[in-house]
Amino acid sequence: MDSDNELGAFLMSRRARVSPAAAGLTSHGRRRVPGLRREEVAELAGVSAVYYTRLEQGRALHPSGAVLDALARVLRLGATERAHLHDLVRRGRVRRSAGSAADAGEPAPAVPVRDGLRRLLAAVGAVPAYILSPAMDVLDANDPARALIGAPGPAAGGRPNLARHVFADPAARERYPQWEDVARQTAGFLRLSSGRLPGDLPLARLVAELSALSTEFRTLWAMQEVREKTHGTKCFRHPVVGAFALTYETLTLPGDERRSLVVFTAPDARADTALRLLGSWTATAPARTHTGHLGNGSA
Rank of each mutant, 00 (worst) to 15 (best):
M1E: 01
F10P: 08
M12A: 15
S13H: 14
S13R: 15
R14D: 11
R17Y: 12
A21I: 14
A21E: 15
A23T: 00
G24M: 02
H28E: 05
G29Q: 03
R32S: 03
E40M: 08
L44M: 09
G46P: 07
Y52A: 03
T53G: 05
E56M: 10
G65E: 13
G65L: 15
L71A: 06
L71V: 15
V74P: 10
L75P: 10
R76G: 14
A83R: 15
L85W: 06
H86L: 06
H86C: 10
R91V: 07
R91W: 07
R93I: 10
V94A: 14
G105P: 09
P107K: 04
P107Q: 08
G116N: 00
A122S: 10
A135F: 05
D137C: 00
L139R: 11
N142E: 01
I149S: 05
A151S: 11
G153K: 00
G153Y: 07
A155H: 09
A156I: 01
G158C: 03
A163T: 02
D169A: 03
P170V: 03
A171Q: 08
A172I: 02
W179D: 05
E180I: 08
E180L: 07
V182F: 02
S193A: 15
R196C: 04
P198L: 09
L210Y: 07
T215F: 04
E216A: 13
V226N: 07
R227L: 03
K229C: 11
K229Q: 15
V241T: 10
A245F: 03
A245N: 03
L246D: 03
T247N: 13
Y248C: 05
T250L: 05
T250K: 09
T250V: 02
T252V: 15
L253S: 07
D256A: 15
S260H: 13
L261D: 07
V262D: 00
A266Q: 04
A269M: 08
D272I: 04
A274N: 06
L278Y: 00
T282W: 03
A283L: 05
T291E: 14
N296V: 14
A299Y: 12
